[in-house]
Design a protein around this nucleic acid. Structure first.
Lengths: 233, 233
DNA sequence: AATTAAACGTGATATCTGTCACAAAACGTT
DNA sequence: AACGTTTTGTGACAGATATCACGTTTAATT
């Protein structure tokens, strides 16, 4: 089975999940893995590449929720619903492969295999904690709080330590960041300019390097919650 | 067993969960079922009364997340964590009783009983969808969107149909509403005044009656998502 | 290298929202 | 009914944020 070659690198829980995988699908930058409103038959585990999860509102504003990578699960919220439909858009921003898992099969598997259900339950629990803390930052600390929180989470998910700070290894435009914060591009641009002026960050070719993460954390009263809850995936 | 007397009125899933309940605890208005930071040993199912779930930030602002009633589960996010601690406050706003479920026992029960794990998984899934759509309303449509969304959800959870509209059967102060919206009391007061002026709502003794729910829905581009996702509990 | 397209920075301005202050109204208690 | 407490309404103002406009810079394409 083609899936076998991936299994070794995965955590035990995901390995279990992957056993139910039907097939491996290549994903291509710029296209969509799924779009909101589409009928949902599969949930996905990302094997490689990057996928951004977002939701549009009626005015066409986009709110980005997650930026997912290797071993992240997407399309999971379609489980256990009648007439399942995706409620988000999953835009591929870096080429790679995903494992597709039929959701009907998975539901049956959960029912039969409590080990599997248990592991997934744990994953869901982490996921909801993550979601709530993220949104709290967005709602309670204004737009600056939203941006700083987003940058901190990006560091935790995609940060690479360099001699001069933490480099966020995903190219992001100001508009991308604005979508994560529910704010205007121009506001992001101004805030980033200020952060650069104060040597908190620097940006080169859409790659942000954070020189003073503690400054960002202090500004939003970060409680230094564990990294499993403070990320963007 | 004391729990038996409640079992009949509960849905199947909750009945299954309740089998693991250790004891029934009376809850008293004004006190807290648990507070954030406290060591967590139990999860609760509300049998009667009302419990408000909230989170404080460093400046002492309170963000209310849920308003829970009969058959709602609270304290669930402590499951599957090492050194489990409550991350929210659960303030009792109406007397009643809760069933306390030891979380270690419950984790074991999930592991052994896939039916139970399955039902809980379904519950978690609904819960996370709810949370995300709520926060999206808060973030994307400004403070007016936050308030309107909160009122709509309150109608769905606590609305009683009267000849002149939908009565939200929970007394709420402006400050309570402000806490749900992450906004200032004065802003809520002004927005409510305007809604009253336009005969969208009326308020008597802290009880809101909504005369024109469609107006509120239109203003925030409500997609009329199913009531299981659009509520406050 | 030249050309086009995308992304960015920034001033000006309008709107939204929070804060402070204080009086009026509603509520609860004795 | 009288009193103290909580809640509400509202003006004035300040700060945050969005929007519009437009020139500059950077990246992509031919």
């Amino acid at each position: 089975m083609v899936i076998q070659k991936y299994k070794e690198e995965l955590s035990y829980e995901l390995g279990e999940l992957l056993k139910s995988a039907e097939r491996i699908v290549p994903i291509k930058k710029g296209s969509y893995l799924f779009k909101e409103g589409q009928e949902a038959r599969e949930m996905y585990i990302i094997l490689s590449g990057k996928v951004q999860i977002s939701k549009m509102n009626a005015e066409g504003n986009e709110l980005s929720l997650r930026l997912c990578k290797h071993n992240d699960i997407v399309g999971e919220l379609t489980l256990f619903t009648v007439d399942p439909r995706y409620i988000f858009n999953a835009k591929i921003i870096e080429n790679g492969e995903v494992a597709a898992i039929n959701i009907t099969d998975l539901e049956h598997a959960f029912f039969k295999n409590s080990q599997l259900a248990f592991e997934f339950l744990r994953w869901m629990n982490d996921h909801i904690r993550k979601t709530i803390t993220k949104f709290r930052d967005l709602v309670l600390n204004g737009k600056k709080g939203a941006l700083y929180s987003t940058i901190i989470r990006l560091c935790n998910s995609y940060g690479v330590v360099r001699e001069n700070g933490i480099e966020i290894s995903v190219p992001l435009t100001n508009q991308d960041l604005a979508n994560f914060c529910g704010t205007a591009r121009e506001s992001v641009s101004r805030m980033l300019t200020e952060l650069r002026k104060n040597h908190i960050i620097s940006i080169s070719k859409k790659i942000i390097t954070v020189h003073d993460l503690d400054y960002l954390k202090k500004e939003i009263d970060c409680e230094n919650c564990p990294i499993e809850y403070c990320n963007i995936d």
